[in-house]
Amino acid sequence: MTPFRYDRAGDVAEAVRMGNAPGAAYLGGGTNLVDLLRETVARPERLVDVSALSGAISETDDGGLLIGAGVRNTALAAHPVVRERYPVLARAILAGASAQIRNMATVGGNLMQRTRCTYFYDTDGSRCNKREPGSGCDARGGFTRIHAVLGASEACVATHPSDMCVALAALDAVVHVERQGATRTVAFGDFHRLPGERPDLDTVLEPGELITAVELPALSVAARSTYRKVRDRASYAFALISVAAALEMEGEQVADIRVAFGGVAHKPWRATQVEGALRGAALTDEAIGAAAALEFADAQLLRDNAFKPALATRTLIAVLNALKTGETA
């Protein structure tokens, strides 16, 4: 690790004042950042510890939920309201990492975690436009089993590693952000970026901005929702493909639906084309397959990830059928 100064912020106002300094970075649970520091991928001059701030979950006046950025992943997954009204979020969190890591990791940190592309971490041997802008991308032409099929660019084919964020994308969450003298909210779908020419920028946050909370709207469709993750081993592995889905049926027809995919893109992928095609339609395997085909029509396949559209489609069919029949586990 390169040397840095460490400060523990006493409140949000102090945190954003400290975080305004050049070279400053915010520290949550550390489960990704400490690793990035050790690998010298991250080289901040100052760490502002915000892990003890914003640790509450409260119900909002309109029936939603306001989740403090410092809430630990375990606490969020175990919260009674999340388990009852937003099961997809509890299931997504529980599918991620290990129990030890979920006990450490914060909600804000989960949004800010960086890709698990091995070339991004390989500081000694690989070029990476996300790590060193303009240096090139050794993932292209390399081992690409975990890489993106949608929304990638010539500069970067990395995927976003979070499970929790896939659920938040499906749930129309809103991110609350603060910096010195200003607050704003960002729709979850706009929070993470596609790589384009600037894969070094994962999110739309400006320097010094701090996530203070994630808000879930009241969403009746979310009561019947779940998350399914397909990975190379049964537990404690990143997703090859994941599906977050919520479904409300009216007889044989889809009354309302939310779908997001993980493991396919530089950001959690809200499947608006799947939703558009299935809303009001009869929920058959053929209809789901056709809807998924629309979503993946522009997929750009690499050497090792050509299985992803088909795997995502099969997973989506399984998940929506399970939600339809009430088998959500």
Binding site: G30, V34, D35, D49, S51
Partner: peptide
């Protein structure tokens, strides 16, 4: 609560 001490900065 169980945590991973390798990913924890002691000062935290």
């Amino acid at each position: 609560e169980r945590i991973l001490s390798c990913l924890a900065l002691a000062v935290q």
